[in-house]
Design a protein around this nucleic acid. Structure first.
Lengths: 330, 330
DNA sequence: CTGAAAGCGCTTACAG
DNA sequence: CTGAAAGCGCTTACAG
């Protein structure tokens, strides 16, 4: 039997009860005589009936579906976040849709049309206006953005990226590194202009405070894609003022940098120290020891879901913070 | 204005037209006098109205939502597949939910309850019965499984994994490798018993046909997780009959194997040749050259969506095949 | 303990 | 060119 187009009325007919009884049995929301209840349960089984959540949602003004908007789920950090969000939201009765950022207003309309019960955003590509338009539904922003003018209805979960980046630089200076290069996020052309790179800000300010140290001066490496990054690293490593260390936008960047350095004959971490960001699991299986600034993804996913739930239930937006931790590998 | 709880009736009231007119304007499905049309459009804008897709779906018996069921989206191969499916399905008007496999019947009920318009499955954990239950909605299976008894309503997109694996072994034998180890999928405890490892089958049969070659005998390496794999590889590489090459379940496994081999002092690919499976982009930035058997993900995503569409529209299930290609890196 | 009916937000056949 | 009404599959207040 098709479980798809079977409706509550079909069940009622087969069980020979009124159709409201079926609801009451399914939702256990009223006492129903044992015989009728059993007839209903049997009919459900026989017809392979499952209640239509969309129809129920129309009544409840809920879809039991949330959205995760992110720029690139092929970046393991976001894939791990998505998978953890899926796990946690499912426990609360929600399915989760992957929405890849599209920076046009029509896309925001599309997302709003789906009447998600909540949306969690990890995007550097959406404008403040676009995010604010979403805020008519419970919204949590995960990525750090320096935009001041988010709607107060939006919940924010800040990652203390600044301190994480500073601790990475400090560590490099401590172990005697002086030529510390900053590896910017690849392909920043799609990034919204209002987004400030907090890592870069931290990098530059950490340098300023260390200006008395000899030979310390900032250098940034930017690229349009990973191929370009790989090429740029191999080139800069062949040049005269090659870096002795890198702080990278994230772990994927760090892996590419590590690969490139080794291809031109440098040993990691002996010749070059590399520090990534995020703490993806894959990093520790690399041939070379790559350190990283870990983001507590599981804590974040749980917090984000809690924030969403308290917005849905009590309409209470909130702000929270999580700290990073420097993970050294030698 | 909240775009969330604004309904078509609110628009109608503001525009001073009947509520059906609003539908006709939005869907462009009947001639409406220019003045009224304009009043409606103005009201939509002013109220920030977006139509409720769920309500529309109730009428159409559609949710405009599909599901992607996979075992582990933190594996880049599946993340890339998901992202490509998202891109393609969005163009056809569908959102996509990430559903991580849960191998119990209650989960199948949950998925059926959402009335997805279609479901695409990359899972080795679901039983045949569970997948067959899903087949009341248009279903496409992507992963190769040897189960004979799938419901004929299900569409199947086969990857020619067997030939891909054989070509990898042949290549290794051609370049003189004799101690070729097979690296099984990590953590196979969750894998459904009916799933046969086609890679392993191909591996063993390729060996049989080469049994006249001296010193060639199969060896398999299995592990419960990546930590275990890393450990097992370092151990086997220290042993007396260490392999001179590896064919790995996928590229992530290959990266771990590569890392482990190098950590104990072997050079890749000079001392050890490693071949992965899938062809994820990240692989080429590794310090060591790792070959792979490429799966045409973009072609697959497009085919899967087309199969889904023709099931939705014409109720026509189909079977299709894609080939892999051996990608050598030196 | 039970059932008929209204309503969630849409679409569209029907009647004008 | 227009509008009132039925219906998609649910839930639940209301009346018995």
């Amino acid at each position: 039997m098709s479980g798809k187009n079977v409706t509550r009325d079909d069940v009622a007919k087969l069980a020979n009860v009124s159709s409201s009884i079926v609801s009451y049995v399914i939702n256990n929301t009223r006492n129903v005589s044992p015989e009728k209840r059993q007839r209903v349960l049997d009919a459900i089984k026989e017809l392979n009936y499952t209640p239509n959540i969309a129809a129920r949602g129309l009544k409840f003004q809920k879809t039991f579906h949330i959205a995760y908007i992110c720029d690139d789920v092929t970046n393991i950090h976001f894939a791990e976040m998505l998978q953890e969000l899926e796990r946690i939201s499912y426990k609360s009765g929600y399915f989760i849709s992957l929405c890849r950022t599209r920076a046009d207003d029509a896309y925001i309309d599309e997302v709003l049309s789906r009447r998600f019960d909540g949306v969690i955003i990890s995007s550097m590509r959406l404008s403040v206006q676009q995010i604010n338009r979403l805020s008519v539904i419970p919204t949590v922003i995960l990525l750090n953005r320096d935009d001041a003018c988010f709607d107060p209805k939006i919940s924010k979960l800040f990652v203390n990226i600044y301190d994480g980046e500073v601790s990475a630089i400090r560590y490099l200076l401590d172990i005697g590194r002086r030529r510390i290069a900053f590896v910017e996020c690849v392909g920043t052309t799609g990034v919204h202009q209002s987004v400030v790179d907090i890592r870069e800000k931290a990098y530059l300010e950490a340098f300023e405070s260390q200006s008395e140290l000899e030979g310390v001066k900032p250098m940034s490496i930017s690229s349009t894609d990973y191929d370009g990054l790989f090429r740029n690293i191999t080139e800069v490593m062949k040049s005269n003022d090659r870096p002795d260390s890198f702080v990278c936008h994230d772990d994927i960047h760090a892996m590419v940098v590590s690969g490139a350095c080794q291809r031109v004959g440098f040993s990691v971490p002996k010749d070059v120290t590399i520090i990534g960001f995020d703490g993806i699991r894959l990093l520790k299986y690399q041939n070379a020891a790559i350190s990283t600034v870990e983001i507590p993804r599981y804590v974040m996913a749980q917090k984000a879901m809690n924030m969403l739930l308290s917005m849905m239930n009590e309409n209470k937006p909130s702000i929270d913070y999580v700290d990073t931790s420097l993970m050294i590998r030698n």
